[in-house]
């Protein structure tokens, strides 16, 4: 019995959160994801969260990868985690608006503002979330066991190419990430070149889109 037969509303787009520290490559990941989802025919919209600007939203709108109207900015005005965890009302409203205006959408990506290792997404807001850290931020990040690293559905270790330049043992960093996450998935990417971003897409498709 599907939603229509059951008299319920369309389930709406899958909502996927992308969090992580400042400069780890969240927006670069979104820029790599957009054309990949476009190629597979996934109806997509994006919500960005910034402190007091629309910097990330503007970057995506100017990039020409997506209809600018499908990019909505939420200004947190405070610690970014407050609007994705404690009170996600602004993001819920933005996602509902996108669903109504462009629906039926398949997927809404919600990029969090850059935050610390403790930021997490409310599961009232998203169905699935990933946490992006980067090699240049330090090989010891997984060992610090921040909630973002531990609890996210998918951990993305970005800027893999920088490891030899910043003295990070990437193999060890990834092994420690896998260990502290108790078997939950880890993907190593280079979002400048798009390396392994396809694997991130596969995780989203498998986890919440179900159409792969």
């Amino acid at each position: 019995m599907n939603a229509a037969e059951n008299g319920t509303t369309h389930p709406g787009a899958a909502r996927v959160g992308i969090g992580g520290p400042v400069g780890s490559g969240k927006t670069a990941l979104v820029e790599q994801l957009i054309p990949r989802f476009a190629r597979r025919g996934t109806g997509l919209a994006v919500i960005t969260n910034d402190l007091v600007t629309e910097e990330d939203a503007e970057r995506l709108r100017r990039g020409g990868l997506i209809d600018p109207d499908r990019v909505v900015a939420v200004e947190a005005g405070a610690c970014p985690h407050t609007v994705i965890r404690e009170d996600p009302t602004l993001n819920l409203d933005a996602a509902d608006m996108l669903d109504m205006r462009f629906g039926p959408l398949d997927l809404i990506l919600l990029e969090s503002g850059g935050d610390n290792l403790a930021s997490t997404f409310s599961l009232e807001l998203v169905d699935y979330w990933m946490f992006v850290i980067d090699v240049a931020g330090g090989g010891d990040i997984p060992r610090k066991r921040g909630p973002g690293v531990l609890l996210s559905d998918l951990l993305v270790v970005n800027k893999a190419d920088l490891a030899p330049h910043v003295g990070v043992d990437l193999e060890r960093m990834v092994a420690e990430a896998r260990e502290v996450r108790g078997g939950k998935p880890v993907v190593v990417t280079n979002c400048r070149t798009g390396e392994a971003v396809g694997t991130v897409v596969e995780h989203i498709v498998h986890g919440v889109l179900f159409d792969g």
Binding site: R178, E202, V205
Partner: peptide, 25 residues
């Protein structure tokens, strides 16, 4: 061949039947 996730993007398998459930009855 599955396009589903794998930890390192290498190991792929056969996808079994998937049951789609979209309502609490």
């Amino acid at each position: 061949r599955a396009r589903g996730p794998c930890q390192d993007g290498r190991g792929r398998g056969i996808v079994a039947a998937m049951l789609r459930l979209d309502a609490i009855l």
